[in-house]
């Protein structure tokens, strides 16, 4: 359980004995995400936090908002994580993605990966983040300091 107090407000969550995945509109408690994967048979835990950056080139961000197709996002996340378990000797994985409005510095995504040795955890965390950015149906809308706003569509146009 990532955060028991959210039990009713957090509708999108998937758990198995080896992973826990969730979408939340609440602030992500990253220490709980990390504790979620710590186990005696894993000698390595790699954690990644994706946070809201103030400047993209010279454009200044005021805030941003994430929207998801939540059922499909959870299903794509599950496929990415299950595939990683087949490719690397992992022990546990936890991924939580934030939705709704976020402020500068907020955590948009937290991932923790546990494996017996560090190389697998480093590689799997990096590769899962790449795949999440390619296929999980979540979209970011940036609100700029100049008053404008844009949906971010990497690779488009």
């Amino acid at each position: 359980m990532i955060n028991p107090s959210e039990e009713n407000s957090l509708a999108y969550r998937q758990t198995s004995p080896s992973y826990e995945l969730a979408l939340t509109r609440n602030v992500i408690d990253y220490s709980t995400v990390i504790e979620q994967v710590r186990t005696r048979d894993a000698g390595a835990v790699v954690a990644f936090l994706g946070t809201v950056r103030e400047f993209t080139l010279e454009k200044q961000t005021l805030s941003l908002e994430y929207e998801a197709f939540p059922e499909m996002a959870l299903s794509e996340l599950r496929q990415i994580v299950e595939s990683a378990f087949r490719e690397w000797p992992l022990k546990r994985v936890c991924v939580v993605h934030r939705l709704g409005p976020l402020e500068l510095g907020d955590i948009a995504i937290a991932m923790a990966v546990a494996s017996p040795h560090r190389q697998a955890a480093f590689e799997a965390a990096a590769e899962m983040m790449t795949r999440i950015k390619q296929s999980v149906p979540i979209w970011k809308k940036e609100y700029w300091a100049d008053g404008g706003s844009d949906w971010i569509h990497p690779g488009a146009g």
Partner: peptide
């Protein structure tokens, strides 16, 4: 709830979804 192929034939109970390239993470 799965990415579709262009040649897939749509059936009566299907739920489609359309959206731009993703930008989560």
């Amino acid at each position: 709830g799965q990415y579709a192929r262009e040649e897939d034939v749509i059936e009566s109970a299907d739920e489609l979804a359309c959206f731009p390239p993703v930008s989560g993470g």
